[in-house]
Design a protein around this nucleic acid. Structure first.
Lengths: 119, 119
DNA sequence: GGTAGTGTGTCCTACATACTCCACACATGA
DNA sequence: TCATGTGTGGAGTATGTAGGACACACTACC
């Protein structure tokens, strides 16, 4: 992983700040997300571990980032995905371990297969 | 889910106890797993929430159960699977949400496809 | 030269997690 | 009858999680 959670958030926020200097200050974003500025500051500098799943999702929404990806950078998985797996743990466990070392395009092909119903 | 985590553990342990009365007492298993008997007792009666991932895995080994399944009953996912997903969160997120409502046999077919390299 | 807005440092807290420790009551066989 | 083994009850503890409160220093503006 090239970026830690915090440094990525900071980079993204500062990027957005370039085209909208007033809204995307640390204080602006923290207000929007519903956090204390000092807390977000510590998160962005990786002083503090990443926040909770819910907070990460709100943060993703405000920054226009993908929730699953941000959660992954925090080492977490969305509860709705967790439920999918927990409902059929052996089945999906097997599938995921099988796909672990497959290249992206192979997995993607599978996704399309299922979606387009080619079976 | 027909069973809670605790009641399932208890049932499985008592089943094994039938063919091996000395080894599969609550105290015997708790010693094997490395827990206090009172703690395991509370877990089996769902007084206490399920234990940690590591403990669940040791418990699964002692009881001859599938780790992923026991973890799932506790609402958890093995860290190795978590890592697989966190490495490519969007890809696997998409796949899992696509497969969420597919029947078992369809998913199983996918598993076999990948394993047998039919592509 | 105040004041408004920026990020940051330090301390604190409430709650959850993952257990242990010790005492107890009951049953069982020697 | 008494030591031994069984499950259980209640209390306590250590560590982690998820933040909040508040003061501070710097900058820019009027």
């Amino acid at each position: 992983m090239r970026h830690s959670f915090g440094s990525y958030i900071r980079e993204r926020r500062e990027h957005l700040q370039k085209s909208n200097p007033r809204a995307f200050t640390l204080r602006g974003v923290s207000r929007e997300v519903g956090l204390e500025p000092s807390y977000l500051s510590k998160i962005e500098r990786d002083t503090q571990p990443p926040p909770s799943e819910e907070t990460i999702k709100r943060l993703a929404a405000v920054l226009g980032e993908d929730g699953d990806m941000l959660l992954a950078m925090a080492g977490k998985i969305s509860t709705d995905l967790k439920e999918v797996i927990c409902r059929r743990p052996q089945l999906f466990g097997q599938l995921l371990r099988e796909l672990k070392n497959q290249p992206d395009h192979a997995v993607l092909r599978l996704v399309r297969e299922v979606r387009d119903g080619e079976w």
